[in-house]
Design a protein around this nucleic acid. Structure first.
Length: 558
RNA sequence: GUCCCAGUAGCUCAGCUGGAUAGAGCAACAGCCUUCUAAGCUGUAGGCCGCAGGUUCGAAUCCUGCCUGGGACGCCA
């Protein structure tokens, strides 16, 4: 429990007590008390609309009610300095801000753990994200998914959820066969033999590179194998290579997964069959026109879906259902799927599927990342996987910088379309908000150096005279720092990772303002210097903790 | 035609599940460095919150209908 939340809770209780004392309503009649943070400082630190909500019950006008509540309110207990009745009946509460000073020792004590809360209550969550087809390159959309998903997981973790990250590998089906065949052809070509790429084969240079490597290492070793053996072999080799590359790309993007789940393992373990049988015995499927259909319309889908085609093979949906069944059976309290807008039609059918299997719909949440458009030299870059023309995740990070890329993706709500202007990000990089936040962090480090040079080095174990903190700017900063755990908790509950960058920007702004208003390192006043450095240190800790959540570095120097 | 997302300052976006005079960054304008990092600070200007109804004490926020832009609607994945 953090200081701000505790104070708010205390205020709510005091308001409740005041209503009862004034005999305005019974306990049962009192609604959930909402404390707003007014935009305008003249309206206090918090404002409550309680009087307006009680107008009906008490049969009095809201202003009158507000006056009554104010009269019976216990100010000392709730750290409230004054109360005012304003507007149509708002009760504005002005805090005795001195309680905020406790934020400093709290942050210094908790350090990297400051911001943790237990709103998650240990709920286990499996977040699946990226899950790009291994035969393609990670492009912009995946970069967004990777940045958002990873940030979200970090946030969930800090808010007391038990998080696991998973990548679902589509290593079964046509695309992989195709990969194997393409690789085989390139291998034969590398050996100077005559072979033609299948019509829908993979054109990419990476396939050629892999084939050349294999040819170099193994020579003609595989030529004598039967075609089937050869293709199988190339499938394993190719996949292995692609996965390693994928993993490396993601690691370099500061994203790592707890599990890499193989689609083909669902076939070998018999889980695909098993899922189909379960659906069948639950009476959720029927046969029509030689195919097997899942009656997803029962659960609100637009139309029924084919699971087994009339040639006997499975559609992508069946293994995907089996995959979600497997995830459910692994005992997670919650599953989160994060993917691109092009798969949004998938939501209804997957929700239908898990219900048909007997799991509650609410256990599976979806986050849909809207499209990313890349602009370069004022022109929109067309995305194309096949021609290899798209800007890849790696290229983007290299050109723009990893910190800026991650911050940029994290700062936008996932469900908005995103225009990524590379020229702006590269050429005018100092205008990127990430630098503003990092600068605040580096500035604090610089303060410590200054203090040392001037003989008033920051002493972490020094006794702090917190009473020396007593300015409006300092209180604003303290309040902002105090909000951090609540911001993290809210971001977790709403899957709103973008609130973290926004918060960090606000915190930085508050700090820069404080920095300009008060001289922190002042050799003439060692005690004051210590307190102010402690406040700066607390700020820096929060900046660092927040940047960690979104995978951005916190530099000591810029 | 159906479904999803978006529409808020010139541009890019916030707006904490319904609150008071709608915010930030960039761009524009005016100030602030012999003193801790000017990648900073202070101030000014800039708005029919797509449009029209509805719900109520109160709507950018919730409901309905339209308009515009993006995406999805396969026995592809």
């Amino acid at each position: 429990m953090n200081i701000l939340d505790e104070t708010k809770k205390q205020i709510r209780e005091s308001l409740c007590d005041a209503v009862l004392a004034a005999e305005l309503a019974t306990y049962e009649q009192i609604p959930a008390i909402i404390l707003e943070t007014p935009r305008d400082k003249n309206h206090g630190d918090y404002a409550s609309n309680l009087a307006m909500q009680l107008a009906r019950v008490a049969k009095k006008n809201p202003r009158e009610i507000a006056e009554e509540i104010t009269k019976h309110f216990n100010k000392e207990k709730a750290s409230v300095r004054t109360l005012e009745v304003a507007g149509p009946g708002f009760i504005n509460l002005f805090l005795d801000q001195r309680f905020l000073r406790q934020v400093v020792p709290t942050v210094l004590r908790e350090g990297a753990a400051y911001g943790r809360s237990n709103v998650g209550g240990g709920t286990s969550v499996l977040v699946e994200f990226v899950s790009a087809n291994p035969t393609g390159v990670l492009h912009l959309g995946h970069a967004r998914g990777a940045a958002v998903g990873d940030s979200l997981c970090n946030i969930l973790d800090m808010a007391g959820y038990n998080v696991k990250r998973e990548y679902y590998i589509n290593d079964a089906g046509n695309q992989i066969d195709n990969l194997a065949k393409s690789l085989e052809v390139r291998y034969l070509q590398a050996l100077g033999k005559d072979a033609a790429l299948p019509e829908d084969g993979y054109q990419g240079q990476d396939i050629i590179d892999i084939a050349n490597d294999i040819a170099k290492a193994h020579g003609e070793e595989f030529v004598s194998l039967s075609e089937k053996e050869r293709v199988d072999h190339f499938q394993t080799l190719g996949l292995d290579h692609l996965l390693k590359k994928l993993q490396a790309d993601l690691e370099d993007f500061r994203v790592s997964f707890d599990t890499w789940f193989s689609e083909s393992s669902l076939y070998t373990s018999g889980k695909v069959e098993e899922t189909l049988e379960t659906l069948r015995s639950n009476g959720e499927v029927y046969e029509k026109e030689g195919a097997t259909w899942f009656q997803s319309t029962r659960y609100g889908d637009d139309k029924d879906r084919v699971l087994v085609k009339n040639d006997g093979s499975y559609t992508y949906l069946l293994p995907d259902i089996a995959y979600h069944k497997d995830k459910m059976d692994r005992g997670f309290d919650k599953l989160v799927d994060l993917f691109g807008a092009d798969h949004h039609g998938y939501i209804a059918r997957m929700h239908a599927a898990i219900q048909a299997l007997g799991y509650p719909k609410a256990k599976l949440d979806f986050q849909v990342g809207q499209n990313v458009n890349l602009f370069k030299s004022g022109e929109r870059m067309k995305m194309s996987k096949r021609t290899g023309n798209a800007v890849t995740m790696r290229e983007l990070a290299e050109e723009v910088g990893l910190d800026a890329t991650r911050f940029f993706f994290a700062m936008r709500s996932v469900d908005t379309h995103l225009d990524f202007d590379m020229d702006l990000a590269v050429e005018e990089s100092n205008e990127n908000p990430v630098y503003y936040v990092q600068y605040a962090h580096a500035r604090v480090s610089s303060l410590f150096l200054q203090a040392e040079e001037k003989g008033v080095a920051y002493d972490k174990s020094a006794e702090l005279d917190l009473a020396l903190i007593d300015s409006e700017k300092a209180y604003e900063l303290l309040k902002k720092i105090g909000e951090f755990p609540t911001v993290v908790a809210g971001a977790a509950e709403q899957y709103a990772q973008h609130r973290i960058p926004n918060y960090l920007h606000e915190l930085s702004s508050t700090f820069h303002s404080y920095y300009n208003a008060e001289r922190i390192v002042d050799p003439g006043h060692p005690g004051l210097t210590q307190v102010r450095l402690a406040l700066a240190n607390a700020t820096q800790t929060v900046l660092r903790n927040g940047l960690n959540l979104i995978g951005v570095q916190a530099p000591q120097k810029m």
